[in-house]
Design a binder for these strands. Structure first.
Length: 859
RNA sequence: GCCGAUGUGGCGAAAUGGCAGACGCAACGGACUUAAAAUCCGUUUCCAUUAAACUGGAGUGUGGGUUCGAGUCCCGCCAUCGGCACCA
């Protein structure tokens, strides 16, 4: 770069301080019992979402959240907390494997290189991580415990009585394999030929793979599943106790998608109903509905095309058309199938079902708008009060019967809200809620139905046909799975030369014939775990990263994760893109481990904050395609790490999306340079020396006032993560100090501590310089106490009072602080501008707000 | 369609129901300089009026409402962004 004169010598001081912090282990967080651990201090666990170390290195989006947590970490240390602030690498995953396929470079190599690059970039920004706690999900010493946790899940079941995960030994039923929290199932999966793997529903976006955008088709395969659905209610209910943004809670609730309703049996067959009791043994279709109150409006049934029932009920005359329809469905991709804009399709089975409420014969259809995977895979069609059913009924000329009266002024046909039941003898004229209860009670009494709850959440498809992931600690013997003995962990993947997918759906690990063979009678599972696995528990490992005996020792876990709140991590900052998946999976694993009594809290993360995305200078998402990507290291070259950190925080509210601006960085850099020049001046030789204006004098009253206002504002703003306004306030203070001829050391001292979390290098350097001369400044700035403000210094003798007439500003007057309401009113009415504005009108009322304003209201 | 977020100067933004636009950017003017950069000081919501000070009016997406007083609270609408999407 050109020898552009730097506004202050950040290039000389930043690397120096980073080296000093490393050497002094300044940010090491000792565990209970370790050297230098101070049990008198409270703990604070502040966590970043650890990155996937890609080859491209860091971009400005990463350090936004990292800077926020770093400010919090440094602030909390100054506040006297033991702070856990760790960083690590989520390094298993597809990109490294794809790269290996392309170049032949082993993922271990790529991962090592990428981690080194990321780490050096993070260090250059001056983050105060305790690097002695660094973890890497691809390290055998780490994934040993990922595999171990999988075995805990595998060896557990969900006891519906206790609503908890329990060891499988407490299950006394016939088929333990049928209730394990990790189980094998033949399920239709999202198969991506291009990637040679199955993907989770969450990894498929509009029928294409999230990674690469390749086509994805449905195909049944044997897969490992985790029974997350058993925890649906707890995952839902326990959200309440967390300090998360409502929008994120809403996303999770939405994803879990709990809906209450009833399952209702419709018996099949054209005959008249038989006697009670006999009826129940006859073949029937069970449907799930959230609106049992519209049962009288059910004029047809629809069964999902894949439902096995279809084979049983289809009549001979209809068989050909049903089969043709099913064949057409099977050929379609998910994308085509779920295309909302397309017209409804379906086929008549020839069979009829009896509506249990009014004994009417209703035709049974199949249609692809009914999904096999939700509820019972069958519905009752109530066209009058469901948009989809109405569309279907109109398309196929099925009868429509209104059974719900909409509130006055609204059309009853197509009404889906709460109204009044009509044309429904059993529940006639009842409001929706009461009608639901009554008809469900009636159905339950006759064993024709039952209350039921359904979730959109599905069990977690946990296996991948990939190389670069944790191998399952599972062996197969005689067609049955069993746990690998713990003594054989970690189970490392074989050293493959060829990582390519087999193309058949068989995982790459199947190529390692020697590795597969476990013993004469057993062979290894060849699937690997998804990338989410390692990130499900890394925050626990950070508490005790070198423990070889346990995934986390009880004492460090209780210390760092405890604290009396439901969630253990005090503050967790990361991207909103993990709002559902990572955060739901981690909560699920956490609850299992909690139930098994390994953990002290039911939830992992107490307070969650999502940083907003940083856009390019053109307002577009940063991407190579637009050529608007900003490399943090380039910015640091020109302006320094402190300017970079402060600008990222000054841009606007943390949670908000905002565009980058190099001019903005420059502005913040000017601010830091002004701080530098408050304390330093250049001598004749062009060297920076301590400024003569810095003196040991008492600050003036006005200086004290602004100083304490700044302490108050900055402290409060850091607590609420309002870093932008904290910086604004410090700018105001610095502007004020710049204008005074003599700079009191005590004020500068306080300023440096306040600014330290934001600009740690600059403040460390200036602190050291002051310490050389002034006894009031000593030691290391990272070991100081955060200042408290003195409220008395903020009080003014005189205050400005706003005078309004009918709410409009007319004048301002200055009065004594202790002026009475009556005095204020008198002063206002005597004011010339107020009198002008009032004119001849009568004064109806005078509102006096003490210390604020007087509002004269005219009639 | 459903859920959520956002809407304030030329730009990033700020404002416990009480002075809208703090702070920063950009722009303009001034000081310093042979000059420039850097630095420092000042002006900067819009409209009208004025030589100027001043003065008057309008103003936080839009239409209503509550209130002495609304960017802020309530109801309706519009726009943008994000998530989910035939989940019965």
């Amino acid at each position: 770069m050109n020898e552009r004169r730097k506004p202050y010598p950040f290039d000389q001081i930043e690397l120096k301080w980073q080296a000093t912090w490393d050497k002094n282990r300044s940010f090491r967080a000792p565990n209970p019992g370790e050297e230098n651990f101070d049990p008198a201090k409270p703990k604070f666990y502040v966590l970043d979402m650890f990155p996937y170390p890609s080859g491209a290195g860091l971009h400005v989006g990463h350090p936004e959240g990292y800077t926020a947590t770093d400010i919090i970490a440094r602030y909390k240390r100054l506040r006297g907390f033991n702070v856990l602030h760790p960083m690590g690498w989520d390094a298993f995953g597809l990109p490294a494997e794809q790269y290996a396929i392309k170049t032949g470079q082993h993922p271990i190599i790529t991962t090592r290189d990428n981690v080194a690059k990321f780490k050096s970039q993070l260090k250059r920004i001056g983050f105060s991580y305790d690097w002695e706690r660094e973890v890497n999900t691809t390290d055998p010493a780490y994934y040993k415990w990922t595999q171990w946790i999988f075995l805990q899940i595998y060896n557990s079941w969900f006891n519906p009585e206790t609503k908890k995960a329990e060891r499988i030994s407490s299950y006394h039923g016939a088929d333990p394999d049928g209730v394990r929290l990790a189980y094998v199932a033949e399920v239709p999966v999202n198969w991506c030929q291009e990637l040679g793997t199955v993907l989770a529903n969450e990894e498929v976006i509009e029928g294409k793979s999230e990674v690469g955008g390749f086509p994805v088709v449905r195909r049944p395969m044997r897969q490992w599943m985790l029974r997350i659905t058993a925890f649906a209610d707890r995952l839902l209910d326990e959200l309440e106790s967390l300090d998360w943004p409502d929008s994120i809670k809403a996303l999770q609730r939405n994803w879990i998608g709990r809906s209450e309703g009833a399952e209702i049996k419709f018996e099949i067959g054209p005959d008249a109903p038989l006697q009670l009791g006999e009826r129940i043994r006859r073949p029937h279709i069970k449907v799930f509905t959230t609106r049992p109150d519209t049962l009288y409006g059910a004029t047809y049934m629809v069964v999902a095309p894949e439902n096995p029932l279809v084979d049983q009920i289809t009549t001979e005359e209809q068989r050909d058309s049903i089969e043709a329809y099913r064949a057409g469905i099977a050929a379609k991709s998910d994308l085509e199938r779920t295309d909302l804009s397309k017209e409804k399709t379906g086929a008549f089975t020839g069979a009829f079902a009896i509506n249990p409420a009014n004994f009417e014969r209703t035709p049974i259809w199949i249609a692809d708008y009914v999904l096999m995977g939700y509820g019972t895979g069958a519905i009752m069609g109530v066209p009058a009060h469901d948009a989809r059913d109405l569309e279907f009924a109109q398309r196929f000329d099925l009868p429509v019967r209104i059974v719900l009266q909409a509130p006055a002024g609204q059309e009853s046909l197509g009404f889906v809200g709460d109204g009044t039941a009509i044309n429904s003898p059993l529940i006639e004229n009842l409001p929706t809620e009461a009608a639901k209860q009554k008809i469900t009670d009636w159905l339950e009494e006759r064993e024709l139905g039952a209350r039921s709850i359904n979730y959109k959440l599905r069990d977690w498809l946990f296996s991948r046909q990939r190389y670069w992931g944790e191998p399952f600690p599972i062996i197969w013997r005689d067609g049955k799975h069993e746990a690998l003995p713990e003594s054989e962990l970690p189970l490392e993947p074989p050293a493959l030369e060829d990582f390519k997918p087999t193309g058949t759906g068989e995982p790459p690990l199947a190529k390692a014939k020697d590795w597969i063979r476990h013993s004469d009678t057993a062979s290894r599972e060849t699937n690997t775990m998804p990338q989410w696995a390692g990130s499900c528990w890394y925050y626990l490992r950070f508490c005790d990263p070198q423990n070889e005996k346990r995934f986390v020792g009880p004492e460090p876990e209780q210390y760092w994760m405890g604290g009396g709140k439901p969630g253990g991590v005090d503050l967790y900052i990361g991207g909103v893109e993990h709002a559902v998946l990572h955060l739901l999976y981690a909560r699920f694993w956490h609850k299992v481990l909690f139930d098994l009594e390994y953990l002290s809290t039911p939830e992992p993360f107490q307070r969650l904050v999502n940083q907003g995305m940083i856009l390019g200078e053109d307002g577009r998402k940063m991407s190579k395609r637009w050529g608007n990507v900003i490399d943090p290291i380039d910015v640091i070259e020109i302006y320094g790490a402190d300017s970079f950190r402060c600008y990222e925080m000054f841009m606007g509210p943390l949670e908000q999306m905002k565009p980058w601006s190099m001019k903005g960085v420059e502005g913040v850099s000017r601010f830091l340079a002004r701080v530098w020049r408050l304390i330093m001046e250049e001598n004749q030789a062009g060297e920076w020396i301590l400024s003569g204006e810095v003196q040991e004098v008492d600050p003036q009253k006005s200086e004290l006032k602004i100083l304490h206002a700044t302490i108050k504002k900055v402290s409060g703003d850091i607590e609420t993560l309002s870093f932008n306004t904290a910086i604004s306030q410090m700018m105001i203070l610095v502007n004020a100090l710049t204008n005074t001829p003599v700079k009191p050391v005590s004020a500068l001292r306080t300023l440096l501590i306040l600014l330290n979390p934001f600009a740690p290098h600059l403040t460390s350097e200036l602190w050291q310089t002051l310490a050389e001369k002034f006894p009031g400044v000593s030691g290391d700035i990272t070991r100081q106490r955060w200042p408290d403000h003195d409220e008395r210094l903020l009080i003014e003798d005189e205050i400005e009072i706003v005078l309004q007439v009918n709410g409009k500003l007319r004048d301002k007057i200055t009065v004594a602080l202790d002026a009475t309401d009556a005095a204020l009113e008198t002063a206002a009415l005597a004011n010339k501008k107020v009198q002008n504005a009032v004119g001849g009108q009568t004064i109806r009322k005078v509102v006096v707000v003490p210390k604020k304003l007087v509002n004269v209201v005219t009639g």
